[in-house]
Nucleic acid binder design. Sequence first.
DNA 1: AGAGATCAAGTGATCTATTCACTTCATGAG
DNA 2: CTCATGAAGTGAATAGATCACTTGATCTCT
Lengths: 241, 241
Amino acid sequence: MSRSELSLSERLADNIVEIIRSERLGRGDALASSRDLARRFGVTTPTVREALRRLEATGVVEFRHGSGTYVGPGIGRRLMANPHLPRSTRASVLELVEARLVLEPAVAAAAANVRMAEAVQDLESAASNALLPPEESLRQSVHFHVALAAASGNSLLREAVEALLQVRARDQVEIRHRYNDRARDHAEHLEILDAVRDGDAAAAERLTRTHLAAIRDAVLTADFPADEPDTDLALPEGGLL
Amino acid sequence: MSRSELSLSERLADNIVEIIRSERLGRGDALASSRDLARRFGVTTPTVREALRRLEATGVVEFRHGSGTYVGPGIGRRLMANPHLPRSTRASVLELVEARLVLEPAVAAAAANVRMAEAVQDLESAASNALLPPEESLRQSVHFHVALAAASGNSLLREAVEALLQVRARDQVEIRHRYNDRARDHAEHLEILDAVRDGDAAAAERLTRTHLAAIRDAVLTADFPADEPDTDLALPEGGLL
DNA sequence: AGAGATCAAGTGATCTATTCACTTCATGAG
DNA sequence: CTCATGAAGTGAATAGATCACTTGATCTCT
């Protein structure tokens, strides 16, 4: 009654993760085929499939049709964003920015105190080539904030910021150009970078707070695209195939 | 080639989430049966099952054998912990505490500034009956830190702290009694509660930092139980059934 | 009439057996 | 040497069925 509380596919998923860990498989390495796994565990392929789907949802494994199943980035991750996020509303976007405004300044301060070498280099490259492409700007901005968190040397902090920005991604693609001032972003990133490079934690914290406050204010003054959804009552038939 | 990049089960999962949202289903509400869903979407039950497994992994739905499929707590969640966490090491426990030490003081300050009514009540109840049971102590402590984050009024901050503590849970069950000073925890919680009630953000921040620093130091001085695992090479045959 | 045992329907869990689609790579023709 | 061909391996999805569990209603005995 103690260990059988979990479903078969759940235990299977745990076992597969255990195999990945014990065999020291990293991102991109191939797993055994579904059929092999089914044989090894004495279950059938649909059951293995369910277990792998669970793992796919959390990014632990990735399917490549006709090729195989591979280890994904989620294998070493502890924090993550929900893969099935709700539609964003004005309130949710604002809540997200305010959460970042609370958390990221402290992360920036930690980054300035530690200054992990590799991450600081990432920081520089992300800050430098930020203005060139039109669509790449957001990606670079994400990269900057993630690299900033990584510079703290604490991967949990990096994962937290990554997860927050992944939540933002859904919103951002729709309303990015409304309040995203690339030039300003770039300038503020450079200031933060300097503070980190100097090991000035207080300045890094303050500049990050200012940076995110500017974004928050831009969200506040921008008008939101779709403020009244609920026109579709989920007709599944048509929209699927 | 644009939208067909996702697998069928992935699109199915999205559609099911959409049904839950458009029909305003909340935690505990029942979904249609697997067979019904299969009929509605024109696929077979194993396919529906894969989609539901994805959603189960993130807590969006819950299975109850013989009863049905129900909406789970993950439906409104944006941040979460990986359900298949790696085994904890001394380094990972330390990293976790240090991440909390960076993030939670800022959250406490935000909580003191906002002071959401309901959450403050939770805070009081969590702080009051914290010493009574032996096993409940940890649960109450979790409750306290989550309620503290909830008092900020920002559900994303609550979810972030919840996720961090969920990561901790795995470690904690093994080494809790080693460095968990319940009396001290309780006293420090009460101090933080007072600061929040007074709306003193600076004090709340400082006290939370002190509180977590004490925990970190306890971890530092404690000896870690299993510092050399890797004795099992994942023999799947025996350990499964 | 009420309390408890029993049964049947609905549902999830899982299996067996197949078919289809995609990728890969080695083979062979040009 | 290059490029097309095709076989093999793999994931994707289906069909149909069986077993186990939960639930609620019915039925029985008191």
